[in-house]
Design a protein around this nucleic acid. Structure first.
Ligand code: ZN
Ligand code: ZN
Ligand code: ZN
Ligand code: ZN
Lengths: 151, 151
DNA sequence: GCTTGACTCTGTAGTCACTACAGGGTGTCA
DNA sequence: TGACACCCTGTAGTGACTACAGAGTCAAGC
């Protein structure tokens, strides 16, 4: 299987596959005579694992650590379990934080009478106040990001 | 007020202040004889506005658009109001998405018996399955990101 | 006048998880 | 032989900062 076929099958872009290889997530495949990457089923399966983890918003570092566990099936699985637990914590913390932001934004929305000028708008006037305690406090180690995707 | 003092007062790093200036969020302040930036209260107030918006996880583009509204107090405020409404939508979409991930992760966590090897671990075996319908579907335009902060 | 130290300046590069080229090589078909 | 799809490497861009390096400025103390 050449890189384009793996990309089509998995829905992952060709450039992303090469990136995963550079990052050490996908092992380097063998090369054909013309220096093309030749993938086997094992690569496709590892890629499924990686995409499944990415769909759960894990970082590549977290995934690397899980792959180490997968590569040592005789070891106890506690590291992997702890990692999932920790990542669930990341997601929960981020939900809590976004819920606070949501409440703030809903309060903000109510402050506009609806048909005035920007100078009178309660939203803009409220935003001009220094930030209260809404800030991203105590999210050390949480890696699940904002509401605006990068693509 | 020199840049260090504005940084201390606002809790924003000196480099970030210079970055906001490059990005056109903070207007270029006047310079002292020694070429130091000299800020006035208006700068500090604009910075409060920016930080308040950033604390609500708006992008710099969203903030730039709000600042345009603020700079034209005689115009109707509908653009600003629509922007807040849209951003609230971004946050809500992201919460919904993270809630789905949370449910998936909780299901995953239950699949581990607790004291086996990685080869037998239900978590690792489940992750090896191709990704289901959990993926970030239909989040076009949402910009609020993951659970893992970049700092 | 000189030194020390805190501050400031510009410019560049790093972060993360990709994405998008540019400029070339390979493989297959007509 | 040419067209075309595919592949290769390497580099640069994204957002919102952060972290330097190397140089300049300024006030205090001796
Ligand atoms: Zn995580
Ligand atoms: Zn309004
Ligand atoms: Zn938004
Ligand atoms: Zn387990």
């Amino acid at each position: 299987m050449k890189i384009g076929e793996l990309a089509r099958r998995s829905g992952v872009k060709v450039e992303t596959l090469r990136y995963y290889e550079r990052e050490g997530l996908l092992p380097e495949p063998e090369r054909s005579d013309g220096n093309y990457r030749v993938y086997r089923d094992a690569h496709a399966e590892r890629l499924d694992f990686i995409r499944h983890c990415r769909a759960l918003d894990m970082t590549l570092d977290e995934i690397r650590a899980l792959l180490v566990c997968q590569d040592h099936p005789e070891h106890p699985c506690e590291d992997a379990d702890a990692l999932i637990e920790a990542h669930l914590g990341h997601v929960e913390q981020r939900i809590a934080q976004l819920s606070r932001l949501k409440a703030e934004l809903e309060g903000l929305r109510q402050r506009c009478a609806g048909h005035g000028t920007a100078g009178e708008c309660g939203i803009l006037n409220e935003l001009a106040q220094p930030v209260g305690d809404v800030s991203r406090g105590g999210d050390a180690g949480v890696h699940v990001g904002g509401a605006h995707p990068r693509r």
